[in-house]
Amino acid sequence: TEYKLVVVGAGGVGKSALTIQLIQNHFVDEYDPTIEDSYRKQVVIDGETCLLDILDTAGQEEYSAMRDQYMRTGEGFLCVFAINNTKSFEDIHQYREQIKRVKDSDDVPMVLVGNKCDLAARTVESRQAQDLARSYGIPYIETSAKTRQGVEDAFYTLVREIRQH
């Protein structure tokens, strides 16, 4: 089974770092803004072998026109913010609204991801993020692309959301 996953969120929150940590098991430290990259990885989730087709997208506003296209083809979405960047957390709402509009559905598989949880300088409390996820009816997972904490959990949870859909 193949799953088309799309990673969305503001610029600099760590979308590529999360994806590369999942696929290649290493942490990319330097920031190089993405336009669009796709990665494929075969994994076993709950005993089922599946192929993850992951689209890593641009957070930069100037590429926002490309969003409709990949939102149409994606089956599930990782909505990523950084726990030390309140603005990126506030941006999640717009991504969710755009996904709902493009998919013409209120019920699209999504996982809210709070990345950079290895950093002490948190400005978005776990509780705020949990409340937001609960209001959307989606899971919330904290990750660190640096330490790998929660990385597999985030992507695998999204696959489970798609399966249950």
Results as ranks from 00 to 15, higher is better:
residue 32 D to S: 12
residue 70 Y to S: 02
residue 143 T to D: 12
residue 6 V to T: 08
residue 103 K to F: 13
residue 140 Y to L: 12
residue 48 E to F: 10
residue 56 D to E: 03
residue 161 E to H: 13
residue 163 R to H: 01
residue 71 M to L: 07
residue 114 G to H: 09
residue 70 Y to N: 09
residue 59 G to H: 12
residue 48 E to C: 15
residue 45 I to Q: 01
residue 138 I to G: 09
residue 32 D to R: 01
residue 61 E to S: 11
residue 153 D to E: 08
residue 10 A to K: 15
residue 9 G to W: 00
residue 110 M to C: 04
residue 135 S to H: 12
residue 37 D to S: 01
residue 149 Q to S: 09
residue 152 E to D: 09
residue 160 R to V: 14
residue 2 E to D: 01
residue 141 I to A: 08
residue 53 D to Q: 03
residue 117 C to I: 09
residue 150 G to A: 10
residue 81 F to T: 08
residue 153 D to F: 13
residue 18 L to P: 01
residue 73 T to V: 03
residue 7 V to H: 00
residue 109 P to D: 03
residue 104 D to S: 08
residue 26 H to V: 01
residue 92 I to D: 00
residue 11 G to T: 15
residue 36 E to V: 06
residue 140 Y to I: 07
residue 75 E to S: 04
residue 140 Y to A: 10
residue 126 S to F: 10
residue 80 V to P: 02
residue 81 F to S: 04
residue 121 A to V: 13
residue 103 K to T: 06
residue 54 I to L: 05
residue 135 S to G: 10
residue 108 V to Y: 05
residue 40 R to I: 01
residue 81 F to D: 02
residue 163 R to D: 09
residue 17 A to Y: 00
residue 135 S to F: 14
residue 98 Q to I: 05
residue 23 I to L: 13
residue 24 Q to R: 03
residue 116 K to Y: 15
residue 107 D to H: 08
residue 112 L to C: 14
residue 60 Q to S: 15
residue 5 L to M: 09
residue 17 A to Q: 12
residue 26 H to P: 01
residue 83 I to T: 09
residue 4 K to N: 09
residue 82 A to S: 06
residue 12 G to E: 15
residue 110 M to I: 04
residue 15 K to F: 00
residue 92 I to H: 02
residue 79 C to G: 03
residue 120 A to D: 13
residue 131 D to F: 00
residue 120 A to Q: 11
residue 147 T to Q: 13
residue 104 D to Y: 03
residue 92 I to P: 03
residue 64 S to M: 03
residue 15 K to P: 00
residue 37 D to P: 01
residue 134 R to D: 10
residue 36 E to H: 04
residue 114 G to P: 06
residue 78 L to I: 11
residue 144 S to M: 15
residue 35 I to Q: 02
residue 8 V to D: 02
residue 153 D to W: 13
residue 32 D to N: 11
residue 77 F to H: 08
residue 128 Q to S: 12
residue 45 I to G: 08
residue 6 V to D: 01
residue 155 F to K: 06
residue 90 E to T: 04
residue 17 A to W: 01
residue 133 A to M: 07
residue 114 G to L: 12
residue 27 F to W: 05
residue 114 G to E: 07
residue 78 L to C: 04
residue 20 I to H: 09
residue 126 S to Y: 10
residue 72 R to E: 01
residue 107 D to R: 09
residue 159 V to I: 14
residue 158 L to V: 13
residue 14 G to F: 00
residue 148 R to H: 15
residue 127 R to S: 07
residue 108 V to N: 00
residue 68 D to Q: 09
residue 135 S to Q: 08
residue 58 A to K: 14
residue 29 D to H: 06
residue 49 T to Y: 01
residue 153 D to L: 10
residue 154 A to H: 08
residue 46 D to W: 06
residue 51 L to T: 06
residue 64 S to D: 10
residue 1 T to M: 07
residue 159 V to D: 04
residue 86 T to N: 02
residue 77 F to D: 02
residue 31 Y to P: 08
residue 163 R to A: 11
residue 117 C to E: 10
residue 76 G to F: 15
residue 27 F to S: 03
residue 111 V to C: 08
residue 121 A to W: 13
residue 109 P to S: 05
residue 164 Q to L: 06
residue 47 G to K: 06
residue 45 I to R: 03
residue 138 I to H: 11
residue 49 T to H: 05
residue 117 C to A: 13
residue 111 V to L: 14
residue 8 V to Q: 04
residue 65 A to T: 10
residue 49 T to V: 05
residue 165 H to N: 10
residue 16 S to E: 00
residue 54 I to F: 12
residue 64 S to Q: 11
residue 53 D to T: 04
residue 33 P to R: 12
residue 48 E to K: 00
residue 108 V to K: 05
residue 159 V to Q: 09
residue 97 E to V: 04
residue 82 A to G: 06
residue 141 I to R: 11
residue 14 G to V: 00
residue 126 S to M: 10
residue 125 E to F: 11
residue 66 M to R: 13
residue 16 S to N: 12
residue 91 D to S: 08
residue 137 G to F: 10
residue 34 T to Q: 01
residue 78 L to V: 03
residue 165 H to I: 11
residue 2 E to S: 00
residue 70 Y to P: 04
residue 160 R to Y: 12
residue 74 G to A: 05
residue 107 D to K: 04
residue 150 G to S: 14
residue 120 A to E: 11
residue 115 N to Y: 05
residue 64 S to V: 07
residue 138 I to K: 00
residue 82 A to W: 03
residue 3 Y to F: 04
residue 80 V to I: 04
residue 42 Q to T: 03
residue 76 G to Q: 02
residue 127 R to E: 12
residue 60 Q to P: 15
residue 121 A to T: 09
residue 86 T to M: 13
residue 67 R to N: 14
residue 22 L to W: 08
residue 18 L to I: 04
residue 42 Q to Y: 01
residue 85 N to Q: 07
residue 152 E to Y: 09
residue 105 S to Y: 05
residue 119 L to F: 14
residue 59 G to I: 09
residue 20 I to D: 02
residue 103 K to Y: 05
residue 95 Y to Q: 01
residue 81 F to P: 02
residue 60 Q to H: 15
residue 104 D to A: 08
residue 33 P to Q: 07
residue 15 K to H: 00
residue 8 V to M: 08
residue 24 Q to V: 10
residue 93 H to D: 05
residue 78 L to H: 02
residue 22 L to Y: 04
residue 147 T to Y: 13
residue 96 R to Q: 06
residue 28 V to M: 06
residue 90 E to S: 08
residue 74 G to M: 08
residue 9 G to Q: 03
residue 65 A to P: 09
residue 114 G to N: 06
residue 1 T to I: 04
residue 152 E to L: 12
residue 92 I to A: 10
